[in-house]
Design a protein around this nucleic acid. Structure first.
Lengths: 252, 252
DNA sequence: GAGGATCGTTTCACCACGCGAAACGCTTAG
DNA sequence: CTAAGCGTTTCGCGTGGTGAAACGATCCTC
């Protein structure tokens, strides 16, 4: 875990912060025993986090502060593509009445940047900042389909091909096949690879110099994501929005 | 800045992260010279952040990763009140066509938790996680109005009463007067205290055991936030939503 | 109400670890 | 061809992060 020449205190701090993020408000001893760290060490870290305003203490329970949200929103707002993508996600959600999202790749994983629920959208436990294995999302597949092979293989080497359902892609062969079909078709299909009964289509958003800035996608239940709607209507809306977005990015 | 018994490396790390949050993608030397830190130190910190996935490097420029958004969203989602408040913010924005928000107090400052633009809402550079001096927002004043005096004074001692416009509250006397009027009236009014031409009304959201969980508020231009609408219509909507929210929180 | 368990806090001595000056290789500009 | 800038790497110093242990407060249990 700890690479060479990196700062251990900071790595520990993030372990503590991530632990606070998964388990709600929690006390010092619980953190120390869960992370197998001495109480005094955790105490010093929490005092530091609290002093910097990144942790809130309430009745001897510690919680993450919304300062992390501040940093996160700044991270999201820094790329102008992301803001332009938000509009298109809204349009897609409105016109299809499904759930639409814009994702990017970071460190080999797919990250939700924007998402919007349409009128009939199926709920999901996704939120901005959430990261999923890149090969299990339609937007992620779309992004990969525009990457050079060595970059795809590097991601596979780093993260493997974790299965989330029985329909997930699990070996490099089929992944490359799917990516090839995605390139031919112009858009990707994720058929129940992340949640049973859920299907999604995605398209890569290509910026200047053929760099992929992210992927747009539409998700819905398999009964509505089928037939002519899946084959023509939705791809047409998706590719139309993607094209407009690419133009907005290039000529902003 | 550096208190006693806290970890310097972590404080430096946040200085670097916050710097990346304000200035977009930036190189190593720019960070080092701006923060007056040795290049090798900044380099080690960036390597650590990158290794933990909290910073993304692209063509020798460093950017905050959306992992901060992940942590931030987790922080926001951890309190069930916040999720319940989101609905009410939506209702208020829809019904008033203005901008509505829910804020909480953290470390003596007011923090945006949820905000939604109504159809006629005036734009503002606010976003979830943004922090403002608590006495310059209607929701913040509403929260303060339910705090015991010693807690209010502690906040004044810590942060002072910074002015943002000529109409801002700047001395403790008038602040306490305004809070007294807020208590009598049942809602607070922020008259151009943060932006000229903008007026807002806010109400405290009180949970079990008389603890204040946050504040709801509605903001709009002074020409629409006036007369009978300001005196009756909007307060009635605001207090109605607040009351419903309080019930939802107590009997969830 | 005494005893025990558990909590957060504080102390303190050790030495790993974070630090920073300097050197290095590389690219770009003039 | 030189010079200035960049990110990277090295390395010895000394301090700052560490963790075992003790401490006092609080909360149960009997």
């Amino acid at each position: 875990m700890a690479s060479e020449g990196t700062i251990r205190a900071i790595e520990r701090m993030f372990r503590i912060a991530e632990f606070l993020g998964t388990r709600g408000p929690v006390g010092l001893s619980a953190i120390a025993s869960s992370l197998q760290l001495p109480k005094s060490t955790v105490y010093r870290h929490l005092r530091t986090l609290e002093g910097q305003g990144y942790v809130v203490e309430n009745e001897e329970k510690y919680t993450l502060s919304l300062r992390f949200l501040d940093l996160g929103e700044r991270a999201r707002g820094q790329h102008s593509e992301h803001q332009l993508a938000a509009e298109k996600v809204g349009e897609l959600a409105d016109r299809t009445a499904e759930r639409a999202q814009f994702m990017i790749e970071e460190h080999g994983r797919a990250v939700y940047v924007h998402q919007q629920m349409g009128a009939n959208a199926v709920r999901a436990d996704t939120y901005p900042g959430k990261r999923v294995p890149i090969h299990t999302s339609a937007a992620g597949l779309a992004i990969l389909s525009h990457y050079p092979p060595h970059r795809i293989d590097a991601i596979i080497d780093r993260h493997g091909l974790e299965a989330m359902t029985s329909r997930s892609i699990t070996d490099p062969e089929t992944l490359h096949d799917r990516l090839q079909r995605t390139r031919e078709r112009g858009y990707s299909i994720n058929d129940q690879g992340v949640i049973e009964g859920l299907r999604a289509i995605g398209a890569p958003v290509v910026g200047p110099e053929d760099t992929v800035v992210g992927g747009l996608s539409i998700s819905g239940p398999i009964n509505r994501m089928a037939g002519q709607r899946l084959g023509e209507e939705l791809p047409s809306l998706l590719l139309g929005a993607t094209n407009e977005l690419e133009l907005n990015i290039t000529y902003q």
